[in-house]
Amino acid sequence: MSTLAIATAKEVFDLLHDDLRAIEREFGAYAVSSVAAITEISSYLREGGGKRLRPSLLLLSARAQNYSGHGMIRLGAVVEMVHTATLVHDDIIDAADTRRGRPSANTTWGNGKCVLAGDWLYMQAFRVALEERNFRILDLLIGLTQQMVEGELLQMEKLGFCIAESDYNTLIYRKTACLFEVSMRLGAVLAGIPKSHTNGHSSSATPSETEDHMGEYGRALGMAFQIVDDVLDLTASEEVLGKPVASDLREGKATLAVIHALEHGSEEDRQAIRTVLEDRDFHRVTHAQILGILKNHGSIEYAMNIALEYAETARNALSFLPDSDYKRALLWVPDFVVARDR
């Protein structure tokens, strides 16, 4: 290992380049069915790209613990299949027209085919994971899938309503952070810590403690990621987002900055926000008016500060790990998450 200080996305990508390419090939091979529609939809979704953040976390988790076996490639493809399945289902539920600047799959193939393609991807992910012959891996993936489905159902029940910050935290954990957490935990399971490291040091943590530390990193990082995502939904441009601005409000979702403004705003402010949540459009109250309310009460800053606190929690969770380029990359990722513009 070099002593390179991880400071840019390119350096992290270079560190994981070969592994991510292997995961991409594996994902492509697994996402083939005898039914043409499934293969076409899976291929379209895979080509949509994205940051591949979740498999990257699994790779960093495993490699930071001196694991280099094929299991991390296989499970990297598994978590990306699970993530892709959630995206196609989310687009159907939200009636989304675009995803990452392209038409969403359901606009091309229809809701029925896309629901079934998403289901197929879930089952294919479990089928591939089964090749590891490890009950802990299956337990993590089953629990993850249940959490995400429950999170989606809970969110549907809350649409159009003003919710408490505690409810918001529960929702974003189930819908986003739990997949980050499980990605990190899977890396720890594969590594089977404690082991000796190439630098001659070993972790004093037990396998269970190590998995928990890595899981805590993933959970906190995922919470930060979703909070920032929700802030960008309110503040970024459509060109940057690749989808309509303020989609959450248009869908009746109250996110952290909005919840803060509801708690600290005047009755007139609260009524304006409630109107948008209930109408699910900006006909009676404009997007600019909502942004003005959020800025007046420091609600955007409040949400970003919470994200920064989660980023710091993530970094602190790694204190037990011996130094390596992979640990330094993990320490860098929270900064990338909170500073990104899309």
Score class of each variant (00 low, 15 high):
residue 108 T to A: 14
residue 119 D to H: 00
residue 120 W to Y: 12
residue 163 I to S: 09
residue 126 F to W: 07
residue 94 D to E: 07
residue 100 R to L: 04
residue 136 R to V: 12
residue 146 Q to K: 15
residue 134 N to L: 05
residue 60 L to M: 03
residue 146 Q to I: 14
residue 75 L to I: 11
residue 101 G to N: 05
residue 134 N to G: 01
residue 173 Y to W: 13
residue 132 E to G: 10
residue 161 F to T: 10
residue 106 N to E: 03
residue 74 R to M: 15
residue 120 W to P: 00
residue 63 R to T: 12
residue 80 E to R: 12
residue 105 A to N: 05
residue 173 Y to H: 12
residue 69 G to K: 08
residue 150 E to C: 10
residue 116 L to M: 10
residue 143 G to W: 06
residue 57 L to Y: 03
residue 114 C to Y: 00
residue 63 R to C: 08
residue 135 F to V: 13
residue 118 G to M: 00
residue 92 I to R: 06
residue 101 G to M: 00
residue 104 S to I: 02
residue 146 Q to F: 13
residue 121 L to I: 04
residue 68 S to Y: 13
residue 90 D to V: 05
residue 164 A to L: 10
residue 88 V to C: 08
residue 116 L to D: 01
residue 65 Q to C: 15
residue 86 T to F: 11
residue 73 I to P: 05
residue 117 A to G: 02
residue 90 D to F: 07
residue 174 R to F: 03
residue 162 C to T: 11
residue 141 L to E: 08
residue 64 A to W: 04
residue 143 G to V: 08
residue 74 R to K: 14
residue 105 A to R: 09
residue 132 E to Q: 15
residue 101 G to V: 00
residue 71 G to Q: 06
residue 61 S to E: 10
residue 60 L to D: 04
residue 173 Y to Q: 03
residue 55 P to M: 09
residue 111 N to D: 15
residue 173 Y to G: 06
residue 106 N to C: 11
residue 61 S to G: 09
residue 82 V to S: 06
residue 171 L to F: 08
residue 125 A to D: 03
residue 72 M to T: 09
residue 175 K to F: 07
residue 174 R to Y: 11
residue 61 S to P: 01
residue 153 L to K: 01
residue 151 G to N: 10
residue 64 A to E: 03
residue 141 L to F: 08
residue 103 P to K: 13
residue 157 E to N: 12
residue 64 A to Q: 10
residue 151 G to L: 05
residue 105 A to T: 03
residue 61 S to I: 09
residue 131 E to Q: 15
residue 79 V to L: 06
residue 92 I to Y: 01
residue 117 A to M: 00
residue 91 D to K: 02
residue 136 R to D: 13
residue 151 G to E: 05
residue 121 L to W: 07
residue 173 Y to N: 01
residue 174 R to G: 14
residue 81 M to W: 09
residue 150 E to Y: 12
residue 70 H to G: 07
